[in-house]
Write a protein that binds this DNA or RNA. Sequence first.
DNA 1: CTTCTAACA
DNA 2: TGTTAGCA
Length: 95
Amino acid sequence: MTDVSGDTHGVYGITVAAELTGLGEQTLRLYERKGLLTPARTAGGARRYSDRDLTVLRRTVELLADGLNLAGARRVLDLEAANALLRLRLAELTD
DNA sequence: CTTCTAACA
DNA sequence: TGTTAGCA
């Protein structure tokens, strides 16, 4: 897709993503296994984190600090994503 | 870089 | 339950 907003495939390796978020690499893999995010993969199977993924990770840190567990954070993340989509559709109707 | 196992709070 | 260390 034509990616004007740009944050969808900003590419970082897991080491960089861990540094940028203050999380451990193992933790990032756990979050993926729990379904909090799904980073892209290289041909060799290495994770590729976009700026979008980093935003999700920072959100996750915030939600965990608020006392949610990973399952709860996952649900909030899903709802926020769905909400953002609805907002876009609403904007199309109101402009 | 990956997955997996085990230990700990 | 979530994180971390070590191994293959």
